[in-house]
Every structure is written in structure tokens, then in C-alpha cells.
Nucleic acid binder design. Structure first.
Lengths: 344, 344
DNA sequence: CAAAAAAACGCAAACGGTTCCACTGGAGGT
DNA sequence: ACCTCCAGTGGAACCGTTTGCGTTTTTTTG
């Protein structure tokens, strides 16, 4: 059917081994043989069979990324797509292919990962989440397969992972609001069991403390990564006897809900309430008003994760590799927090 | 290293062939042999080596999807992620893996696809776009590889493809506005060379004609799939001596720009201008006001594409398969077009 | 009860590469 | 002129499965 290494060999009057060596440009092949063989390959339209190659080399030059279930429900879509783009871009640059997999539930995920890694279809995996107690992580770790986490694991702190310094990011965001003169700053959080929620909350608290402001329990609400969460939070906050004048919001999507809630309640952003959120997905600039957000470099997160994984796959064990990569973040200040408090 | 079919065979006291046959549950294997072998496989933790299998079976049970370059720039991200989710979900259900690939330019794309298909790494491909004249399509077609287009090709009308009936969709959207009493209806289009732009424009024109309304050149503008396009279109439309009272907009993202433009110019939606757009990405419901949009079933598009491709891969050539799948659309009417024109 | 048919299984050759080892022939050393 | 050495190449085994065909065992049948 397809032209093989033997066909080329025959046509070139050399042995298959020689052709193979030309392909991997082995040092001990003469210039002219190499030229001749390459010409013939070109002429015959030869393409190496990747399967045959990986069968013997025991390496597939490909990785998989596991989409979490939430990707189904939430529309963290923007987030994931950006991440995937980064992953694919880097992987392709390094000559790796990327395989996407998703499972309905955790059990299915483990089965999928098991099939892919035990079946030697991929060399490693990227996990796009950090759940509290993850069967997939357990599987990968116990089988000693290369993998990297986008996020971090509390259970195993020294896993290879790529993450944002969420504490610092929240600290910076909060400080920004403080520098605008705000003294009553609230926090709209996400699911309390997610590490990212906890970390951002921590940074928020730290910034307040450092500025000598007190963190009031009633100015902190927890919710989901959904706009409804933000929406509901507003009817709560705005009925308080003492309302916050600024909000740090755990995610852009939630911030959209906040925006909508405030709008319906008749409050203006940023005049009445200044807000800033996290992730800086591409929509932040086109809401009304444009949303201040902490850019966490999602593409870069993906890119780095892919790089770290491939590095770890290729690693011969000589040098010691870092366990943890922190992607720098930066504040993107837009209208939603551009208003300086009148000195009151 | 890893436990192979031979290890299992030895341990079970049978030949490798028998083990293989158990795996593919060949009819001529006795109940008990099958049980015994399966038990041993379980016990030894056997997992079939996918590479070895594909080498001999000449089929990889996996497909690839080619991300177009625009995915890099535009944030059709929402769109693509949704599509990919559909593709992956269906493929996994059918036992196929999905491989994502993207190329910087068309040449790189061809190289990537060539490597994947010629190298027998995947069995087929899904193309997420319909460009005017596509080298990737030419490659796939001339090599007779299975592939499916999400969209349609003017050059080769009978390619396997999955698409929306964009003419009808635009017709329906326009008719909706007409039914609200609008007589001056404009159209904000996308890049004129994209088939989707052309089709939607066509449906728009047809609806106007059927209603006896005239389509005025100055009420139609072309642009990009970017919010700026919509934004700019508004400063044009709203300076016209006779302004449209309703707009059909080629894409949700563009509609966001329109919304913003109208807002800044002091027009209210839907009181002053009613609008409806296409695709119904998840953000349409959380803009202010929520956007009427034509839901084109993006997930379904992906799901069906995957299904069609796999069907075509497995096809033995006996029966004849459809070339073209049309995914039904439906209007999602929200606030942005809820206002009935005052009888003027 | 022998012969034929069916059922269950084993052998060995692929699939398309890679790589260790052996072989050849000419250059360089003595 | 003989030995050594090395660059350049060929031979063959192997990677883990599948599968056509042949062999053995069991069952059916006349």
C-alpha cells in the first residue's frame, strides 16, 4: 500500500538499515548515500510509519490533556481553549502531538488515562485542574508516569505543576483598590473547596491586613464559577447596612454577574462600586464598562505546562528539574476600577 | 517492562494467538479458556499495546482536528471549544481518540496533516473551516483520506460536510424582526469571502424580498468577526439620514460591538434598535440586554462531524453514505429583540 | 464404531521500523 | 608487506499484535 523503508532501500540499492540511519541522520553514513536515499524518499513519497517507529522506540511523541468534567457544564470554555492553544502550540513546536480526552466521571477519566498510558499511546499527561483528592493523580503517580498539573495539589505539594501565584495576584488586585482610596472592600469567592478560591481569598485578606483595614465576614461571599453567583452576591451585599465600595471577584465570569446585578439595582460601576476580577478572558474588554482583571497568562500556562511535561518525558535523570513553575500575572486596569474615591 | 500478550499466554499455558483471540472475542474460543485468560490478564495487569495493534491492523482508532489559524487571533474560542467538546464526546463514545493540531500557516497545516495521515497516526481528519481554496482540502482529497468539513466548500460541493443551513437561519432571523413590525432592517456582515457571510446575507435578502421590503445597500456593511466591526458599523449606520430600526448581525461577537456602539451613541436596545445575531455562544444571555441569537447547535455540529467521519472511516463501501449533514438551528429570542415596533 | 465435521487452539509470518553485531575495504602505521 | 583501525554498510533479531492456515481434539453422523 504505502511506501515503506524497504521499498526505498531496494530502489536505492542499499539495505533497510541504511535507510533508517539516513532518516535519523546517523553519523556513520556517507554524504552521498544520504543524498541518494533522501532523493529517492522524496521521489517515492516516503513517510515514516509512526506506529512502527513507536513500537520499537517505545515512545510515541505525543501527550494527552485531560479535560475536567466542569468543562462540560461551565463555560470556562474560554479558559480551556486558551490553555489548549498554548499546549498545542508548544507541543507541536517540540514535535509532539496532543490528544484530548474527557471523561464523564472520575472513573471514566481514570480508565481513559489508563488506556492511553498503559497502552503506550501517549508518553505523558496534562491535568487541567487541581481537585482535592484525585484518582487520576493517584493513578499517574503510582504508575510513575510523567504528568504535569495546571494548578497545584495540596495532597502532593511536590508534583510537577504550573500555576499562578494566586495569593500574590489577589494581593495585588486588592492593593490596587486600596490605592484608589477604598476602605470597604468585599470579596466574591468561588467554590470554597477549590484551592484557587482559597488562595485568592488569602491574598485579599493579607492585603487588607497590611493596609490596616479590617476584613469583615459579611463582605465575603462564596459561590460557584457562574455568573449567577455574582448576581446573587450583589443582592446580598447591597442590602447590607454598610456596603462595600469595591469588590475583588474571583473570576471574570462571576464578575459579569456582579456587573449585571449592580446594574439592575441601579448602581454604577465604577462610580458607586469599583470592581476587579481574575483571569482576563478576552471578554473583559467588551463588557460595559470594561472590566479590570488580573491577567494570569492562560496561554502561557498551557505553553509552559506542555514544555515542562515534554522536558520531564525526555529527561534522562541526570540533572534535577524544577517541580513548580509560576507564571507571572499582571493587572489589566480598565474602566471598572478607574474611578478614584472622592475623599470622604 | 510492560506485560505483553506473550507473558499472559505463557502464564495461562496457551499460545499468544489464543490470548489475542480472547481479546477480540473470537467465536472459536471456549468459554473456559476465555475466562481463564481474562482472569490472568486482570491479575497481571495486562494492557494491549495500541501501537503494536495499529501496526498490524493498519488502523489507529483516532482522528485529528485541524484548528484554523484564526483560532489564534480571534476569540472564536468559545465557538471552537464547543465544537471540540462535541467532537471529543462522540469520538470517545465510538472508541476513537482525538488529536488536536494547529499550524501557523497553510503550508505548515498541510505538513502537519500529511505527517499525521501519511504517517498513519490518525485515520481521518476534521476541518473546522471552509476557506475559499484550501491546500489541506486538496491534499486530503487527492490522497483519498477520509475527512469531514465543518462548513461547506464551494469548490467541491460534494465533500463530506456538516453545516448549518445559514441561508435559512438568516431568513428566519430576519423574518422574526419583520414580524415585530420592522421595515428598515440592516445587516452587519463578516468577511465577504467567507461562505458563511455570503449565505447569511443571502437569507437576509430573501426574507426582505419575500416581505416586499427593499434591501438598501447602505444598510449593509461588511467587516470582520470582531467586536470592533460591529462598533464601527454603528457610527456608520447611525449617521445615515434614514437609520435602520433593526439589525441582523452575522455573529454574536460582532453583536457585542454593536451593542457597545449603540450604547455609546445613546441608543437603547431594543427600544430604538432591535438586534439579533448568530451562533448563540454562551455569553449572549449575559450581555445587557441579553442578545437574541440563532442557536446553530455548535456542540451538535461537532458531535455530528465526528460521527460522520468515523462512519466514513469504517465504511466498507457497500451502502452509500450521505455527503451532507444539516444541523437544525433555532431562534433564541431574548430582550434585544423583544420590543414590538410602535405602529408608525 | 469408523469416518467426517466441527470446535479449539498453535505456528509462523507478517506489520514497518530500529539497532546490535558482524563484515568489508581502504587508509595509516611500523 | 602485514597488521590495525575505522568509516560505511548489511544481516538479522526484535518491538507486541493479528491472522491465515494447519493441527489436534472433540462431537456428530451414518
Amino acid at each position: 500500500m504505502s511506501v515503506t523503508i524497504k521499498d526505498v532501500a531496494k530502489r536505492a540499492g542499499v539495505s533497510p538499515s541504511t535507510v533508517s540511519r539516513v532518516l535519523s541522520n546517523h553519523p556513520r553514513i556517507s554524504r552521498e548515500t544520504s543524498r541518494k536515499v533522501r532523493d529517492i524518499m522524496e521521489e517515492m513519497g516516503y513517510h515514516p510509519n509512526i506506529m512502527a517507529k513507536s513500537l520499537v522506540s517505545k515512545t510515541t511523541e505525543s501527550i494527552c490533556v485531560i479535560l475536567p468534567k466542569p468543562a462540560e457544564e461551565l463555560f470556562l470554555n474560554l479558559f480551556f481553549m486558551e490553555l489548549i492553544r498554548g499546549i498545542v502550540a508548544q507541543a507541536n513546536r517540540s514535535g509532539y502531538d496532543v490528544l484530548i480526552s474527557s471523561g464523564g466521571n472520575e472513573k471514566e477519566e481514570v480508565e481513559a488515562v489508563s488506556r492511553l498510558l498503559n497502552g503506550r499511546r501517549v508518553d505523558g499527561a496534562i491535568l487541567l485542574y487541581s481537585r482535592q483528592d484525585d484518582a487520576v493523580v493517584d493513578f499517574l503517580k503510582s504508575n510513575d508516569y510523567p504528568f504535569v498539573l495546571v494548578g497545584r495539589s495540596e495532597k502532593y505539594p511536590d508534583l510537577l505543576s504550573v500555576d499562578t501565584d494566586n495569593v500574590q495576584a489577589a494581593y495585588d488586585a486588592t492593593k490596587h483598590l486600596i490605592s484608589l482610596g477604598h476602605k470597604r472592600i468585599g470579596f466574591v469567592s468561588g467554590p470554597p473547596n477549590l484551592i484557587v478560591s482559597q488562595d485568592r481569598m488569602k491574598g485579599y485578606g493579607k492585603a487588607l491586613a497590611d493596609a490596616g483595614l479590617d476584613m469583615r465576614k459579611e463582605w465575603v461571599v462564596e459561590g460557584e464559577f457562574l455568573q449567577e453567583s455574582g448576581y446573587r452576591a450583589m443582592s446580598f451585599f447591597m442590602n447590607l447596612p454598610e456596603r462595600p465600595t469595591a469588590l475583588v471577584i474571583v473570576d471574570d465570569i462571576v464578575a459579569f454577574g456582579v456587573l449585571r446585578g449592580l446594574h439592575e439595582l441601579g448602581y454604577k460601576v465604577p462610580e458607586d462600586v469599583s470592581i476587579i476580577s481574575f483571569n482576563n478572558i478576552s471578554l473583559t474588554e467588551l463588557s460595559t464598562p470594561p472590566l479590570s482583571s488580573v491577567d494570569i497568562g492562560i496561554y502561557n500556562l498551557g505553553y509552559t505546562a506542555s514544555q515542562a511535561l515534554i522536558q520531564s518525558i525526555r529527561h534522562d535523570g541526570e540533572t534535577v528539574l524544577p517541580h513548580r513553575y509560576i507564571i507571572p500575572h499582571r493587572l489589566m486596569i480598565r474602566e471598572s476600577s478607574m474611578y478614584s474615591m472622592p475623599k470622604s
